[in-house]
Design a protein around this nucleic acid. Sequence first.
DNA 1: AGTAAATGTTAGTCTAGATTAACTTTATTT
DNA 2: AAATAAAGTTAATCTAGACTAACATTTACT
Lengths: 194, 194
Amino acid sequence: MNIQPLFDYIRNHVTLTSEEETFLASKVSYRKYLKGQFVVQQGDVCKYESFVISGCTKTYYVDTEGQEHIVMFSVEEWWTADLGSFITQTPADYNIQCIENTELIMISSDDIEELYIKIPKLERFFRRVIERALAASQKRIIRSFSMSAKDRFLYFREKYPQIEQRIPQYMIASYLGITKEFLSKIKSQIILEQ
Amino acid sequence: MNIQPLFDYIRNHVTLTSEEETFLASKVSYRKYLKGQFVVQQGDVCKYESFVISGCTKTYYVDTEGQEHIVMFSVEEWWTADLGSFITQTPADYNIQCIENTELIMISSDDIEELYIKIPKLERFFRRVIERALAASQKRIIRSFSMSAKDRFLYFREKYPQIEQRIPQYMIASYLGITKEFLSKIKSQIILEQ
DNA sequence: AGTAAATGTTAGTCTAGATTAACTTTATTT
DNA sequence: AAATAAAGTTAATCTAGACTAACATTTACT
């Protein structure tokens, strides 16, 4: 049970009093998952917003043809949840699965509302986190329409070099919205170029 | 100068005291734009978050090949801004242009921070607005990868029937990430089917 | 070390959607 | 009402990326 990384992360952005820290600590829970386990399954209600202490998760959607589409990866110091399900407490559209052994700090929807009320600084901080995530999400939509698969891959590699290393290529292909075969082709093409 | 619709909109979600309403009124400004005018231009800093009273705007990105990609339309009771530019006060990636004569209520970044501090209920409300927008944006990414152009169009038509009516088809094509010629083909195909 | 499972590659064929270009229809302006 | 511009259509050709399938390599398990 190591929740220190969450405090370090929050301290980088807001200053909490020691009472506030104690209150925060009382509202979070720690949990370990093994590689392959699910944090959320499509159809369940996403009860928690989770902060990744160590490990990595993938959030994906299974379409009507049974195909997996990865929405995001979450590594250390990132948040993960099916946000739509979490905020409305209705069944999730996405699966969140650990692709490594993963340690999470989890906050329930009721507890996070309490935290927001008691510690407005935290609500401000989370609002900003979400604003940034929304701006990033809009840019990703633009990239999906205006860039070729190859350029999207080069962008991904440039932006998340660490993540590229630790994740199987076929998952990166899914995240980029292409097949693993085509990503393989793109990579050999890139190698030929240099 | 008619800011009443903003109050009506906010009243549907949070209850403000009359002092709070007065303070809010002192922090917003009203502005009329003609069809074709720009609220924000790529490269400028997006100074305001705008609430649409009447009319319609398109938010679009011009890529390196000079092609327009529409990110969103904003009609009555919607907010519009280049969020990335607004929150960091750095140059905008997007253009926001009025495609009808448009009335906006605009709030500057400093003023909205003041509002959040003085009226925490408003911060809570906006956090929720943004959370919902982020969940919707993630779903749009999934749709762009898992649905055909035709299905994306049918989804758009189903979800925003009013918007489909008032916007030229070539802009809808741009929003859907396809050419106007292909949307035309899709529409004639749909007509043949029924 | 040897086998099975997971991951990645290569190549051929196919298709959704882009591009080009000529044409039609609908709005706007004078 | 004519002229012009804006929006939408049709059809032919082209291409990025999907799909299929066989094969190669790496990783994990006994």
